[in-house]
Design a protein around this nucleic acid. Structure first.
Lengths: 105, 105
DNA sequence: GTAGTATGTAAGTTGTTGCTTAAATACTTA
DNA sequence: TAAGTATTTAAGCAACAACTTACATACTAC
């Protein structure tokens, strides 16, 4: 959780998360979304996000597709839950439900 | 929101928040909760938390009492909610699709 | 195979962060 | 008033984080 919160503290990484929230996006397409910074910089952010458990990767031939990993985000949100339970306490549940729903079929 | 997330990314500051979640605690008492670091270090963390809108201060004579500011935390949690909200509908759809597809593998 | 495309890794630079000790501020009390 | 207590501010430092350019890897297609 510590790693995830640190990852999310960076605005570029949050923007990346928004970008891959609902669909897989290739590293190149993600980098194209950030003209201000270099491709290696984006790659490093991606690595940090993956390590923090916030992103899933799928290698397809030449490319790598990234997608937000909701369960990781929910784990990060655990802190907020414990501090202020009302609005966020459903997050983890839903994430786990989705995770197991994606893995089973 | 950016500042709040950066503030929360530090484990010491999260521990401080836990300490003052439900009641006012004086700076000295907070510092006493962290024997590993100096009083000025705690003071700096407190300043960061106040600036980020996560803490309220009340000066009473010689002392300053800190307490968690729930609203600030909620604003920080906005990011997590925004990552969450839209796909909830999609999730429901997917779940329903799977439910109906389960009978025909 | 060679050339080209997509991506990650290495090494180095710069700004930021979290800490320290020393000094300053602000209030209380004898 | 002076001395004591509670706390913050200042200055400096080591560790880290986010970037850069240059190079390496891995796959695709002629």
């Amino acid at each position: 959780m510590d790693e995830a919160l640190r990852a999310v503290a960076d605005p570029t990484r949050r923007a990346i998360l928004v970008l891959v929230r609902d669909e897989e996006v290739s590293a190149g397409d993600i980098a194209r979304g950030f003209p201000g910074i270099s491709r290696p910089a984006v790659s490093q952010h991606l690595r940090i996000l993956v390590t923090a458990g916030l992103l899933d990767v799928r290698r397809a031939g030449n490319r790598r597709f990234y997608r937000m990993r909701r369960q990781g985000l929910a784990e990060a949100a655990t802190f907020f839950e414990s501090m202020w339970s009302a609005p966020l306490n459903r997050l983890k549940q839903v994430a786990e439900e989705e995770e197991s729903a994606e893995g089973s079929p």
